[in-house]
């Protein structure tokens, strides 16, 4: 009897703990990505170039993750990350270009 039960339970526990590990790493993956995107946002802010919606998007990403919608959460994090990357490129571009517009 014990043998039969263990034949079911041990694999079941294994599957459960494996899937438990899988969801843990998905949220770990999200947290890592979110933290990186927020750091990028702060970098843009440090040079005065943070865009208006980046923080909001990160907030929405957290909310999506809290609801378990990891796919959307990761999409939003990627969107926020891209905004900060574009802002940094913009800052570099403008640091040279602005002088060319000053009326002489």
């Amino acid at each position: 009897m014990l043998k039969k039960i263990s034949k079911i339970f041990i694999p079941a526990i294994a599957v459960l703990s494996l899937s438990g590990c899988a969801s843990l790493s998905a949220s770990e993956e999200f947290t890592a990505a979110w933290d990186a995107a927020d750091a990028a946002r702060k970098d843009a802010a440090a040079v005065g170039y943070e865009w208006r919606d980046t923080g909001k998007i990160l907030g929405k990403a957290k909310a999506a993750a809290d609801e378990g919608d990891m796919e959307n959460a990761m999409k939003l994090v990627a969107k926020a990350q891209e905004q900060s990357a574009d802002a940094m490129v913009q800052q570099k571009r403008e640091s040279e270009l602005w002088k060319t517009r000053v009326p002489q």
């Binding site: 005065g48 865009w51 913009q90």
Partner: peptide, 12 residues
């Protein structure tokens, strides 16, 4: 600041 384009819409 006055002459630099900024924001997603890229206006100075």
């Amino acid at each position: 600041f006055f002459y630099s384009k900024r924001g997603q819409l890229n206006f100075s």
